[in-house]
Every structure is written in structure tokens, then in C-alpha cells.
């Protein structure tokens, strides 16, 4: 069962302490230890692989050398035969035979190294995958645990101090009130601006004499005279 499925099962079961339900603290520690050990094994396997690859390279080099020696000696043998020196040719042939048997052994060694290297490589890949999986699972469980603890602290604070968060409805009302207050302030600003603009227009009209002052001295005198 994968970790997410385990979590979901725990949630369905109504487990409060989901992290604990999936892996308790003790197994969490064992799990961490396992990851640590796997990493150590992996490092060892990688070291082993390096050694085998080095041995394989050396074996390849040696095989090449022997094969070159075989080719070289075959040339000598042909030349000896051309000179009808049977004794020398036989001596060279004996050497070639021993070199060939050496090459055969080296080929077997090389195949073994290759096989071991391939095996180690696949083991390393497998181990790396397992470690990555375990670390992801551990991160999920740990996150769940700390989130749970954090939530516990937060909800305790909320219940201990009701005004700390308050109900959603109260929050909503406060948000609305604030937004209304801001809107009012904005409107007031606009109105004030309009008023001031209006004032300045009035002054301009009066200054240019287009609009007469209703209560000017001239107007009063004119009214009195007309009586």
C-alpha cells in the first residue's frame, strides 16, 4: 500500500493523529535508521562498482596486449616456416598456444567482471529508487505530523482566546464594514474635491462679474434707492 493510500485510509477511519496512525514515533525512528543504513550500503555498492570497473578496464587492456603478442608471434612463426626452421616454428607455436590459453582465461575473467558490474549497477539503481521513495514517504508523514501539531497549537489559541479569529461570519462583517468605510472615505474625498472645484468656479464667475454677489453693498443700496 503506498503512503498516500495509507493516509487516505487513516483519514477515512477518522484518525485524528493521522501521522501517528500511519507510522508511530518508534517506527518513524526505525524507518529513518533504515534509510540511513540503505544509504551506507549504497555508498559501499558504488565503491564496489568503481573497483570492478577498474578491474574490468585492466583486464581488457591485458587481453589486448596478449592478443597483440599472439598476432606478433604468428608473424614470427610464418617467417620461421618460410625459412624451413621447423624447430623454431614449433617453439613459437608453443608460446602462441600458452598465450591463447592465457587469453581464454582473461576473457572468462572479463565476462565475470562485466556480469558483476551489471548486477551492481542494477542493485544501485534499485537501492536509489527505494531510498528516494522512503524519503518521500518520510517527508509526507513528518509534514503531516508537524502540520497536525501546528494546527493543534493554533486551534488551542483560537479556543482559548475567542477574539483571536472569531467566526467566519464576524470576519466577513468586519471586512465588509472596513470596505464600506474605505468606500465612504473615497466618496467623501470625491465630494470634497467637487465642492472645492465648484467653489473655485464660483469665485472665477464673481471675479469676472458674470455672477453678482447677492448681498453686496451695491445691491443693498440699489434696493434701498428703488424703495
Amino acid at each position: 500500500m503506498n503512503i498516500i493510500t495509507k493516509l487516505l485510509t487513516a483519514i477515512r477511519g477518522g484518525a485524528r493523529e493521522i501521522g501517528e496512525a500511519v507510522v508511530d514515533t518508534q517506527s518513524l525512528r526505525i524507518f529513518e535508521q533504515e534509510i540511513h543504513d540503505s544509504k551506507a550500503n549504497l555508498a559501499e555498492a558504488k565503491q564496489g562498482l568503481t573497483e570492478i570497473v577498474a578491474k574490468k578496464m585492466a583486464a581488457e587492456r591485458q587481453l589486448k596486449e596478449v592478443q597483440e603478442q599472439i598476432a606478433e608471434n604468428e608473424n614470427y612463426a610464418i617467417k620461421a616456416l618460410e625459412k624451413n626452421d621447423e624447430t623454431l616454428a614449433l617453439e613459437i607455436a608453443t608460446k602462441i598456444a600458452s598465450l591463447e590459453s592465457k587469453a581464454e582465461t582473461q576473457k572468462i575473467d572479463l565476462a565475470t567482471y562485466e556480469k558483476n558490474a551489471d548486477l551492481l549497477k542494477s542493485q544501485i539503481q534499485e537501492a536509489e529508487k527505494i531510498i528516494a521513495d522512503h524519503e518521500r514517504e518520510l517527508a509526507i508523514v513528518k509534514t503531516r505530523n508537524s502540520v497536525h501539531q501546528a494546527t493543534k497549537s493554533v486551534t488551542q489559541t483560537i479556543t482559548a482566546n475567542e477574539s483571536s479569529i472569531g467566526s467566519a461570519r464576524e470576519s466577513l462583517e468586519r471586512i465588509k464594514q472596513k470596505q464600506q468605510a474605505e468606500e465612504d472615505k473615497l466618496q467623501a474625498g470625491v465630494a470634497l474635491k467637487k465642492e472645492m472645484e465648484g467653489d473655485s468656479l464660483e469665485q472665477k464667475l464673481k471675479a469676472s462679474g458674470i455672477k453678482q454677489e447677492k448681498h453686496s453693498a451695491e445691491a443693498v443700496l440699489a434696493r434701498l434707492k428703488s424703495k
Binding site: S146, Q149, A150, K152, S153, V154, Q156, T157, S164, S171, R174, I175, K178
Partner: peptide
Amino acid sequence: IKGEQEVLRVEVSGLEE
């Protein structure tokens, strides 16, 4: 906020609710 897991309560001004 103290507890098993330390928590910081942050109010962003203008969005305190």
C-alpha cells in the same frame, strides 16, 4: 505561539481579519 510545533501568527495590515 508556543507549543509542540512553534507557530507564528501574522496579521497583514489592511487584511487583519
